[in-house]
Design a protein around this nucleic acid. Structure first.
Length: 581
RNA sequence: GGCCCCGUAGCUCAGCUGGAUAGAGCAACGGACUUCUAAUCCGUAGGUCGAAGGUUCGAAUCCUUCCGGGGUCGCCA
């Protein structure tokens, strides 16, 4: 039950009637019409800009057109009153008979309240995290991980067919460095004194268990091999170990990807070769030269003829090289093949959740998508800004030396997955985020995680109490809630907020902005806390009133509806609603 | 130098992809507990939406140009 869709249908029906009468052109475009809640509740429950948007095509003044539209809406039983305001807004107040239907629907739908078919089953691939398999995830990965996961949930909830995917960068030089680093730890495990880890190798202690495991598996047989023989063995072993670790870290945050896609398989299966052949056939590549990079001294710049993708024809600033000077493929070449593969798997929306430092990469990805999908698919890139860590207001210092960085696991272990997940979504993705270890575990108003959880727990507390206070027999013989008993302004504020939930989810999904769910939950929690406290000054507003059973039962049903809304939103964010604090 | 992101109350940020008098929280000040959990709530105060133009019924939002902060810029991934 989405009240805004409901009213929109009525408005569009009225507009079609007007089109039939010749007031509007037959082919009028309705796409810019909004049907939404006005910012000021005094303006009513639902407002539409239809008259203002269509005034020009109709060749009439907005307020005149509004008159014609309202005449057709006025008799609708769901609409209590209609008014024209300001430059031509049509403000509607829903009839008293309408709200009970909404509340009944919320209770009936329960955990399904908010789901929609907005996406029409569109196949969406959400790629997120995709960290190099060379070490544990650090805090920097946290935000993208949580953002991507919440976005995937959000899209799923709004009717998209979602695949969560992780791209494993297991083909480049950095995994050879990983192999050499692991080999050193292997020699260490065999009793050798390896001294200090040479610069250029990964110094982290997390490779020690890998070295030990290698020693157990291979004994000292690797030690006598030439590098070209042991390296592939050690590399594959180490990558597997790193990916196991990464999967564990993600699991600790409640994140599970459906597909882990290996870059190396693109090389080995010949998919990149195929892709480049196809590009050649379609005339999308050519041999050419690039200008040297600007802004940087071109130290080792070598002007050469190379194979270039015609990215500029698809909106990029410069054509992009596919082959390195040593003849191997660039990272970009693999990415082209990867996009081609995603399209071949039927995805029509490719979502990339990236760190802000990859901003420069977006245009070329979009160029590839345009070239290969011919406009059939959309590529959406979302950039996550970095997270600054604090402890009691003081910045947490991290030095890259000796692997002394804060890992994702450190953070989750200290404050818990729910706090991490919620906090990561309390800011728009492209705004920097401060994360203070002390503040996020504080139990106070300025900690949004706590604030929302507390509202949920309070509701559960009342629901628990009610059984004792009112007696089991009251519940056994309870009829349907009489929603007309909810008359107070604070109660109606909440009813309307609940009504906005489905629309908020759709807007968030369209914009790919899961943080809106977090903000909505804070608003709903605030509405609830306000009502709670109002019950202190005005005892008749309390939820449990022993001498008014029908009213109490209705308010308890009301609480269950609020609870569904809070819990559903929290679930989307991957945060567990708690029943007690 | 090119491209991308950001600039909104003293601070941290929202602002529903063009709507009505720009909103929360923190900090400041003044109030509300014999509790269904005061871990909360109510009230007061606080603004040339970085600047200037433009688009139109209407701009914090869209376009152009500046100012300031961050990121990025072939053969790393």
């Amino acid at each position: 039950m989405n009240i805004f869709h409901h009213i929109r249908d009525k408005v569009e029906k009225a507009l079609k009637t007007l089109a039939g009468r010749g007031v509007l052109p037959e082919d009028t475009d309705f796409s810019h019409i909004t049907v939404e809640a006005p910012r000021d509740p005094a303006h009513g429950d639902v407002t539409t800009n239809a008259a203002m948007v269509l005034a020009k095509p109709a060749g009439r003044k907005p307020r005149d057109l509004a008159e014609e539209i309202t005449a057709l809406l006025r008799d609708d039983p769901d609409i209590g009153s209609v008014e024209i305001a300001g430059p031509g807004f049509i403000n509607m107040r829903l009839s008293e008979a309408f709200w009970p239907r909404l509340m009944d629907a919320v209770l009936e739908l329960g955990e399904a309240y908010g789901r929609s078919d907005l996406g029409q089953g569109l196949k969406v691939n959400v790629e997120y995290v995709s960290a190099n398999p060379t070490g544990p995830l650090h805090v920097g990965h946290c935000r993208g991980a949580v953002f991507g996961d919440a976005l995937a949930n959000l899209l799923e909830e709004t009717g998209h067919e979602v695949t969560r995917e992780y791209y494993i960068n297991d083909a480049g030089a950095q995994v050879d460095v990983l192999a050499r680093s692991a080999f050193l730890r292997y020699r260490e495990a065999l009793g050798e004194d390896i001294g200090e880890i040479p610069s250029g190798l990964y110094p982290g202690a997390y490779l020690k268990p890998v070295g030990k495991a290698l020693a157990e598996k291979y004994g000292d047989s690797l030690r006598n091999m030439p590098e070209e023989e042991w390296l592939p063995l050690v590399r594959d072993f180490a990558i597997d170990a790193m990916m196991d670790m990464i999967r564990d870290d993600l699991a600790a945050l409640g994140i599970t990807h459906e597909v882990f896609f290996s870059e190396r398989t693109l090389h080995e299966s010949g998919l990149i070769d195929d892709t480049i052949r196809e590009l050649r056939e379609r005339g999308l590549v050519y041999e050419g030269r690039l200008p040297p990079p600007k802004g940087k001294p071109p130290e080792d710049w070598e002007d050469r003829e190379q194979l270039l993708f015609r990215a500029t024809e698809f909106g990029d600033d410069i054509d992009r090289p596919l082959v390195k000077s040593d003849g191997s493929y660039t990272y970009f070449a693999a990415d082209v093949a990867y996009i081609r593969d995603k399209l071949a798997r039927g995805f029509r929306q490719l979502v990339y959740v990236l760190g802000a430092d990859h901003g420069g990469y977006v245009k070329r990805l979009q160029a590839v998508n345009r070239a290969l999908s011919g406009g059939e698919a959309e590529l959406v890139a979302r950039l996550c800004q970095l997270v600054k860590l604090f402890r009691g207001g003081e910045p947490v210092r991290m030095s890259k030396r000796a692997g002394d960085f804060v890992t994702l696991r450190d953070v989750v272990d200290e404050v818990g997955p729910d706090v991490v997940r919620f906090m990561m979504l309390t800011r728009k993705n492209d705004a920097p985020l401060d994360f203070d270890f002390e503040k996020v575990t504080e139990q106070s108003r300025d900690n949004p995680v706590f604030y929302v959880q507390y509202a949920h727990a309070r509701i559960c507390s009342v629901l628990r109490n009610a059984r004792e206070e009112l007696g089991e027999e009251v519940f056994a013989s309870a009829g349907r809630p009489d929603w007309s008993l909810l008359k107070d302004e604070a109660e109606m504020t909440i009813v309307k907020r609940i009504g906005e939930y489905p629309r908020m989810l759709e807007a968030a999904a369209k914009a790919h902005e899961p943080h809106r769910v977090a903000f909505y939950l804070q608003d709903l929690a605030a509405d609830f806390h306000a009502l709670w406290n109002k019950g202190k000054e005005s005892p008749h507003l309390r939820f449990i009133l022993k001498d008014q059973v029908d009213l109490s039962l209705t308010r308890l049903a009301f609480l269950r509806a609020i609870r569904y809304c809070l819990a559903n939103g929290l679930h989307l964010l991957g945060v567990r609603p708690v029943e007690e604090m």
